[in-house]
Each structure stands twice: as C-alpha cells, then as structure tokens.
Amino acid sequence: MKQKTEKTGSEWLRQGFRAGIPICLGYFAVAIALGINCRNAGMSALQSGVMSVFMLASAGEFAAVTLLSTGAGALEMIVTTIIVNLRYLLMGAALSQKVSSRERLIHRFGMSYCITDELFGLCASVEGKVSPWYAYGAAIIAAAGWTGGTVLGVVIGSVLPHFIVDALSVSLYGMFLAVIIPAARKTRAIALIVVISMAASLAMSEMPVLKDISSGFRIIILTIVIAGAAAIVRPVDEPDTESEVD
C-alpha cells in the first residue's frame, strides 16, 4: 500500500519512543507538582490520573484543578480551557502542515492528542513531514510519565517536605526553556523573539491596567501580536514543504 522508500512505521515508532524518554522524565517531575495540587484541591488519585491521561496538558491541567477547586460552572470551564490552551490551536495549525497529505484522516485525529508544548516541539524539529507513528511513540512514553507523576503526586504529596515541592514548581518552566533556547541558539530571529516576548510578558504583568488581564489572555494577545509582527518583518521559507509527487 505504501510505497515509501522512507522509514517504516515501526522504525518511526521506535524513534518516537526514544525521543519521548527525556520528555517522560521531565513530565514526571512536573506532574508530581501537579498531583500535589490535585490532592490539595481534594481530587482522588483516580480522578487526577484520568485527567492527566486524557488532557495531557501542563498549564491546562493546573488551570483545570483551580477551576474544580473553586467550583466553577460549565461555561467558565469551557472558556478558560479554550483560552489557556489556545496555543494548542495554533500548534495544531502548524502541525497540520507537517503531516503528509498521504496520511489517512484517522491519523490526524490521533496526532491531535499528541499536541503538547514539548511533543509539538519534537515533531516540529523533524525535518520534512513527520510520521504519525513518531508522534504516537513519543506521546505514549510522555503520557506514561505525566500520568504516573500525577498519581504519585496525589499519593505522596503530603509526605514531601515543602522545600522539595517549592523546587518542583519550577520544573515546568525548565521544560519550556528546553524547547525555546536550543531553537534560539540555532536561529537568530528566534533568539530575538524570545527576548522580546519575555520582556513584553514582564511589562504586561507589571503595568497598571494591563496587569489585570488574566495570564491566559496575556499569552494569546502577545502570541498574536509578536508572532504576527515577526512574520511580517522576517517571513520564513521553510525548506520542509513536501514535494508532492503524484
């Protein structure tokens, strides 16, 4: 059926497993912090685990726990979930261009699950089109670490001393840095964008009036403005446009 001379599905899958291991470890550490939050909010290990398996989102799940603990209503849940995770919409749009048009539709549904900051970063770093099996391999490993860490956090949360919990709370940001800094090192335009974005983010969180904007909205506004400006000033011609030979 497939007459590709490229890598086979199982090769991609194995490669995805390997690429997913560091993500799994990073997720595990962050998820413990998440699990502690779940526990403090009064969620059971099962509820927390189910949430992590199916949502597979860092900031999104921290927001979800806050919503649950404040007894939010359905509308607030829908709106907040959309805003906090809107970057996944943009990442999904970007990833949609990395999937070969020869792949079956079902894989687009499957790969949608695999959109997290780090997994997306991984798929984006693949040269040319990315195989769904690569995304699945990495996602399975990463989700195992994320879910395992969450459940463990719920179970052992109360045992951990405060200074450990404090230290774990920054691991999430470490993961983000591990995605953006290597790209900034390679491409000067991205380095500049990282600096501008961080400066703008600081400014918006400190300035009167602007600081009252919720962090979810701040992320969306700055993303649209800065990525939009960058696209005008420094448009990219990605070399990975697939040459469709029919």
């Binding site: 990442m91 749009a93 984006a124 983000f176 790209a183």
Partner: peptide, 18 residues
C-alpha cells in the same frame, strides 16, 4: 506559514517569564 512557525516560541517565552 511564518506566523505559525513563530507561535510556539512566543507562547512558551511568555509563559516562562516572569
């Protein structure tokens, strides 16, 4: 295309700092 290329870097930078 360019916009989508830059999106993740802006988003993650904004989320990380401060």
């Amino acid at each position: 295309r360019s916009f989508l290329y830059y999106v993740p870097y802006v988003t993650l930078s904004v989320m990380t700092f401060p």
